[in-house]
Nucleic acid binder design. Structure first.
Lengths: 306, 306
DNA sequence: TCCATTGCCTGACTTTAGTCAGGCATCGCG
DNA sequence: CGCGATGCCTGACTAAAGTCAGGCAATGGA
């Protein structure tokens, strides 16, 4: 990894979080502890379930309870029993709370405005574009790709979303049974593998490998949720699949795909998959690809260093 | 100001500071309170004056004293009397402190590495470039340009640096007296104005206006420190001068410059200054410019909104 | 030499942020 | 219905972070 890259990230961390964090902490200051303000902000106009708040802010249950009590004492928040589970509670802003929330919101806006205000118009555009890029990249860097059990609920949800998307994109719809989808246990060791990509804990993509003849693996169910595309997740998953392939005893990987899935085809071509003759009777497939895989020592070094 | 810009800045603030700040706080954790670790980091290998630390970290004098005492008790820091002022003290790292500082430094590096590690190589380059851009823009946005007394020491330092730079860049050197430099009080109200640009409190640029005939102002001493160039400071100063011009009763601004100062000439041309005939006998000048100035209502609205 | 100022230290506080162990009500399954 | 799990609350703590008023020693200009 490039050392100048590392030091640039460190410099960014030091300077930007100091400048933005300092001001950010300041604008929230309303004579109220920071945690309370954040909580008020997080509850928002529509209210929020207590358990949701606890997760979003990563707070201890007792501590959160106390914070809510404090806001309640100030008349900013009212807690009501949840309709469907009378143990659960929901925090709502009172009229006064909504007003206070508005003040915080306006402060946050004023801060952003003051930041941009002292820039020339051309610089503003550049700053905003660069900020969006940093945000996108950090999002990408927080995606985790791991082997998971193909029978778990998140895997099932991904498969489901994948099938629904195929049905929407293919002219004639899509039926998994006709496509020859076997049991998902095909994607479990020792003869297969399933990868899930997670962003903030939520599953946003999947990719699987199953046996398909002596020494041959087949890539199946390569999918990334629409809102998580453009983050390089598919690329990372395909690289990860190839890493696993040799361990599973595959020296060749193949796959089928459909002409409507142009991004997928581009992905395979970019990664050195060559188009081959039809090798199965999947009625939805009209393109078939193959690639010889070998354990790459360079890639292993990179992994070891991170 | 564009509202989508404002909301992008807010989104950046929320997401990036949370992600980077959270991890940043974490890696510093060494069983030691965060403030102590930050202090250790800030003292650095070369040591630092206590007053300097107080300013950089914006800490209460008493609190800082206590933190230093704590680090001293752990054998990480030693405080010595300053040589030139026996009231002042200087904090130095002990051998053990240097070791600990190294650990923190390595952690910070490891964090940056882990951030980059889960990105594809192409993304890394993009992230780093965008980070550098954000940093630069934020630096630019923290530059403050204000009217100051032309007799104060920072102004004098700027003039001095300006003259030294001219001397270095002109073939025949530069002598302010020959150039017709009068008293700096010419740049004070009611007939003139001096602007200083400050970055983190330090003066990094100047620009002045003085009377030069009925209704005519002259731009003088337009200078930006080498390390603060490329931040749009000169552009902002020239805009600010033009704002002040009408208030001082000038409807025309003129200036002279030297062919070696190519950036300056480009700046004037870009801002609508037209080249005119020689209007003075400054032996160092070989280009003369002029611009008619009017109070721009659009610009005023922009200022009012920030 | 005097005296206001500066620089740092100390003691005595307060507030914020968080942790932990229980406790009570409710839920959902068998 | 009983029982373990879940969801929230409370009391009792602790550590960290920060504030404030004074105090002593050194400084520097009148």
């Amino acid at each position: 990894m490039d050392e100048t890259h590392v030091s640039q990230v460190r410099s960014f961390n030091r300077h930007v979080t100091r400048r933005i964090g300092a001001l950010g902490g300041d604008y929230l200051g309303r004579g109220r502890p920071l945690a309370e303000s954040r909580l008020l902000f997080e509850i928002g106009a529509g209210g929020a379930d207590v358990r949701e708040l606890r997760e979003r802010l990563a707070l201890d249950s007792g501590y959160l309870s106390r914070l809510l009590r404090a806001l309640e004492a100030d008349g900013l928040v009212a807690c009501v029993q949840s309709a469907d589970d009378r143990r659960a509670r929901r925090a709502m802003l009172t009229r006064k709370g909504v007003r206070e929330h508005g003040v915080l919101d306006r402060r946050s806006q004023a801060f952003a405005r003051s930041l941009l205000g002292s820039l020339l118009p051309a610089q503003r555009g550049r700053l905003v574009a660069a900020m969006a890029e940093v945000e996108r990249c950090l999002r990408a860097s927080s995606v985790e790709i791991d082997v998971e059990d193909p029978c778990n609920t998140d895997a099932a949800a991904c498969f489901d979303a994948y099938f629904r998307e195929l049905a929407a994109r293919f002219d004639r719809g899509f039926d998994p049974v006709q496509a020859g989808a076997g049991s998902v246990t095909e994607y479990a060791p020792p003869h297969g593998v399933l990868l899930l990509a997670r962003l903030d804990g939520q599953a946003v993509g999947c990719a699987a490998l199953r046996a398909s003849g002596r020494g041959i693996g087949e890539i199946k169910r390569m999918w990334v949720a629409a809102h998580a595309r453009g983050l390089g997740i598919a690329q990372r998953m395909i690289e990860a699949l190839e890493q696993h392939a040799t361990g599973l005893g595959f020296h060749r990987l193949r796959l089928d795909t459909h002409h409507a899935l142009t991004e997928a085809r581009a992905l395979y071509v970019r990664n050195g998959y060559r188009e081959i003759e039809r090798y199965n009777d999947n009625p939805y497939a009209d393109h078939w690809f193959e690639k010889r895989v070998v354990r790459r020592s360079g890639a292993r070094r990179e992994v070891a260093r991170t």
